[in-house]
Simulated scan of single mutants.
Amino acid sequence: MSETLLETLEPFTRLEPGELEQIRRIARPVEFGPGSTLIREGEPCRALYVLASGTVEVRKKILPGSTRQLAVLKAPTVVGEVGLLAGGVRSTALVRARTRTRGYEIPREAFVGLVEEGSLAALKVVYELGRLLAERMAKTDDTIAQLVTRLEEGGETQGPEIFRDTMMQEWGS
């Protein structure tokens, strides 16, 4: 696994060289063609994906038979962090490759094994992912509060569309 890739992604930036090596040992190279599914909503999450190249879309079921795009993420980034941290939880969204996407899969089972062994590397990654998710949640909460205020005060007639479009812009940034 490329050292510079791990070192540039937020969950791994505080790891020492030996700790990075522990993560590299459990990571497996993966490649997805356009339209391939990395994570399927409602299924158990099996891995964290460290994306080195490509673009993925994140989609959420809104109604039976209907999904909405929440975000488009470009590498380098990580996806699958909720499933990695929340054991036994079903995936909260669909993640599908839009372009040829390459990277690394960190299997949940192997990562949990490192945590159970007391690996400082794994514990640091858990902490950083938790912090990243908390920041994303706070940003989402602020956006929702602003949208609700706008809808209530402005009498917007296109409420759901404005909400969707704003959330897509926020998640994509």
Rank of each mutant, 00 (worst) to 15 (best):
3 E>D: 15
5 L>W: 05
6 L>F: 15
7 E>V: 10
8 T>G: 14
9 L>P: 04
9 L>F: 05
13 T>C: 07
13 T>I: 12
15 L>Q: 02
16 E>K: 14
16 E>Q: 14
17 P>Y: 03
17 P>E: 04
17 P>A: 04
18 G>V: 08
20 L>Q: 13
22 Q>P: 07
23 I>W: 08
24 R>M: 02
24 R>V: 02
28 R>S: 09
29 P>A: 08
29 P>E: 10
30 V>S: 07
32 F>A: 08
36 S>Q: 13
39 I>Q: 00
40 R>A: 15
41 E>K: 11
41 E>A: 12
42 G>F: 09
44 P>A: 10
45 C>Y: 00
48 L>R: 06
50 V>W: 08
51 L>G: 09
52 A>V: 06
52 A>M: 05
55 T>K: 11
55 T>R: 11
55 T>G: 03
58 V>M: 03
61 K>I: 09
61 K>R: 14
61 K>G: 06
61 K>Y: 07
62 I>K: 15
63 L>P: 10
63 L>M: 10
65 G>P: 02
67 T>E: 12
67 T>M: 06
67 T>W: 12
69 Q>C: 04
70 L>W: 03
70 L>F: 02
70 L>Q: 10
71 A>T: 03
73 L>C: 04
74 K>T: 09
74 K>A: 08
75 A>M: 05
75 A>S: 00
76 P>L: 00
76 P>N: 01
77 T>Q: 03
79 V>A: 08
79 V>W: 06
80 G>N: 04
80 G>T: 04
81 E>G: 06
81 E>N: 02
81 E>R: 08
82 V>F: 07
85 L>Y: 06
85 L>M: 00
85 L>A: 01
86 A>G: 05
86 A>W: 10
86 A>N: 13
87 G>C: 03
87 G>S: 11
89 V>K: 15
89 V>I: 07
90 R>L: 10
91 S>Q: 05
92 T>R: 08
92 T>W: 00
94 L>N: 15
95 V>L: 05
96 R>N: 01
102 R>I: 03
103 G>P: 06
103 G>I: 01
105 E>L: 09
105 E>F: 02
106 I>E: 06
106 I>Y: 02
106 I>W: 06
108 R>K: 13
109 E>Q: 15
110 A>T: 11
112 V>H: 10
113 G>K: 11
114 L>Q: 11
114 L>C: 07
114 L>N: 09
115 V>W: 02
119 S>A: 07
124 K>D: 02
127 Y>S: 05
127 Y>C: 10
128 E>P: 00
131 R>N: 01
132 L>Y: 10
135 E>S: 10
136 R>Y: 00
137 M>T: 09
137 M>Y: 09
139 K>Q: 08
140 T>N: 02
141 D>I: 11
144 I>F: 04
145 A>D: 05
148 V>F: 06
149 T>R: 15
150 R>M: 01
152 E>S: 14
152 E>Y: 13
154 G>E: 05
154 G>I: 09
156 E>A: 14
156 E>T: 15
158 Q>F: 12
159 G>S: 12
159 G>R: 15
160 P>W: 11
162 I>W: 10
162 I>H: 10
163 F>N: 04
165 D>N: 14
165 D>E: 14
166 T>V: 13
169 Q>Y: 13
172 G>A: 13
172 G>V: 04
172 G>S: 15
173 S>H: 14
173 S>L: 14
